[in-house]
Computed example of a mutant assay.
Amino acid sequence: MSTFKLVVVSAGLSKPSSTRLLADRLADATVRRLGGAAEVTVIELRDLATDIAHNFVTGFPGAALRGAVEAVTHADGVIAVTPIFTASYSGLFKSFFDVIDHDALAGKPVLIAATGGTPRHSLALEHAVRPLFAYLRSVVVPTAVYAATDDFGATGDRHTGGLAGRIDRAAEELAALLAGRGPAAAEQPETVVPFAEQLAALRV
């Protein structure tokens, strides 16, 4: 059975973090819908904050940041979760995706989610986070998941379906996109022909 590479980007700043909690629940739900055929890599942006700042100054990523960027670039799908500050994504979240090449996420399935202290910030997913990934030409799943503090442990109502219902719906949409595309084929190592052999071929 082929295995999907699923990368989870969490921009939570505290530890423990409600942002990371939401990210883990989304990843678990997606893996279940893929029948367990997924390899999950979690990127905690709080651990990369210094590397991200240095990259903007020097233009060169450190080893940890380079590994995170490569993981996102080669992922089959991405779950991106940010806390909402001042009605938008966090600066750390935006800075990380600024580091990644603009073509790296083109056509890649992405599930977006966010956390905040109040339900009033839920529309930030639609007016800030979704346009960011639309600019990067990602395929964003229809259901964006927002979790306010009161959502954790709540059952919801007939209009919202509760946080668990939103997580399940978004995970199902992401899994369907991944299953439709199939896992990316492993990259083949580049064949390097020694310069002497190239010269010999020209002389023939």
Rank of each mutant, 00 (worst) to 15 (best):
V81L: 05
F4N: 00
R20G: 07
V81K: 04
A164G: 06
L163F: 11
D150N: 11
T86I: 09
A11S: 14
T115A: 05
L177H: 10
S17A: 09
V129R: 04
L136S: 11
L22N: 00
D98A: 04
V31W: 03
G182Q: 10
A71M: 05
Y146I: 04
K94F: 05
E126S: 10
G156R: 12
R181V: 00
A64K: 13
Y135W: 13
G36I: 02
V78K: 11
L199C: 03
I100L: 15
L22A: 04
D76K: 02
A23Q: 07
A23L: 01
S17W: 15
V193R: 08
L125V: 05
V110Y: 03
L22H: 04
T41D: 03
I79A: 08
E172P: 03
E172S: 14
R120H: 15
V40F: 03
E70Y: 00
A170E: 01
A176Y: 06
R158T: 09
K108E: 03
I84R: 04
A124L: 08
A80R: 07
V140F: 01
A53Q: 13
D76W: 06
T118V: 04
R46N: 11
A134K: 12
P83V: 01
V78I: 13
S95D: 12
K15V: 08
E126H: 12
H74N: 14
V145L: 07
L65V: 02
I79W: 08
T3R: 13
A64V: 01
A11W: 08
A64D: 14
A170V: 00
D151T: 00
Y135P: 01
V129M: 08
V110K: 03
V193L: 14
A170R: 05
D157C: 10
V31L: 06
E70F: 03
A63D: 14
T86K: 15
A179P: 01
S90H: 01
S138W: 00
A64H: 10
L125K: 09
P83G: 01
T118D: 13
V78W: 04
D150H: 12
L178T: 01
V72I: 06
G107M: 02
T191L: 10
V42T: 15
A114T: 08
R130K: 11
H74G: 06
G165Y: 13
D28V: 09
F96D: 02
F96L: 02
A113R: 01
G62N: 07
A175P: 02
V192S: 09
H54E: 13
V192F: 14
I79E: 08
S88N: 07
P83S: 00
A11Q: 00
A37Q: 13
L132Q: 10
R130S: 05
I100T: 09
R166P: 02
G36K: 03
G162H: 07
H121Y: 02
A147R: 05
L48W: 11
L34R: 00
L174C: 05
P189W: 08
V72P: 08
V110I: 11
R25W: 06
A75L: 06
R32Q: 15
E126R: 05
D103N: 12
D24Q: 15
R25A: 14
V110D: 06
A104H: 13
V99N: 11
V139N: 06
D101Y: 07
R66G: 12
H159E: 10
G62C: 07
G165Q: 09
T50M: 09
V69T: 13
F60E: 10
G153Y: 06
V9Q: 04
Q188S: 14
D101K: 10
A29V: 09
K108R: 04
R66Q: 12
